[in-house]
Every structure is written in C-alpha cells, then in structure tokens.
Amino acid sequence: MFDKSTRVLVVDDMATMRKLVMKVCADLGFTDVQEAADGEKAWSIINNDPKPIGLVISDWNMPHLTGLDLLKRVRADKRYAGTPFLLVTAEAESSQVTDAVKAGVDNYIVKPFTAATLTEKLEAIHKKRGGAAAA
C-alpha cells in the first residue's frame, strides 16, 4: 500500500461521498487527506499546495470540471503527470472506460462500492506503479 504519509486528494461534489472515501483513507492509515468539491478546486489545490499531492481519488461526474477533465489536466502538466489517479464513477459504459484509460487513469471504481473494493483498487495502483507489497 502507499506510504501512509502520502498526501491524498479526495474530489467529489457530494459531501457524503467525500466523507465516505476520506473515512476509508483514514481507516487505511492515511494521515494527510485533503478534499475538494469539484475539479477546479482540486486543480487549485494541486497547483498551490506546498506538499505534492501523491494520490488523487476523484469522482467523474461533477460540475465545473469533471473528473475526466481533471485527469487530462494532471496528465498534461509535466509537474503532476505522474500522480496516481483513481476515478470513481456511477457510470461504467465501455466508451467511458476507454476514455478514462486513454486519458491515463491508473484505475477506476464503479459506485456503489465497499471499503474493501476501494482498498483493493488502491493496492492495485500501488502494485502497478512498482510499489512494495502491503505494508
């Protein structure tokens, strides 16, 4: 799993879903979890936070800037292009999955989901990026 001091950014326009994801992150031992209510606010945090964001967990369907568009911005900026990015979506149509993969998503999770599923996805991302086995 990721280092527990990794700065995690949870992005969702729904406060309850942010709370749910942040609770899972806390249960996993992450100690530095930030939140943003849409993609624009998330982009501002990514750009302005003195400590680099080490993992983004973002909803897809949001006003102002969608999760997919946020992902594209992150991947297009060489300063952040390597940031692990998990998309959370209520939609899982094949065309959308293809769009997300083309944009460089590390993994995606379809709502509804359990804490165990979110944990598995995070572990898969960490492993894919050459991380060590669960700490």
Binding site: M14, A15, T16, M17, N61, T89, A90, E91, A92, V110, K111, P112
Partner: peptide, 13 residues
C-alpha cells in the same frame, strides 16, 4: 446530498 448521491448511483446502474 447523500440522497442525491444514492439516486445518482441508481441511475448510473
């Protein structure tokens, strides 16, 4: 907004 989120997920399915 939990109500909205639940409906969002149901509609997505």
């Amino acid at each position: 907004d939990g109500a909205a989120e639940l409906l969002n997920i149901i509609f997505g399915h």
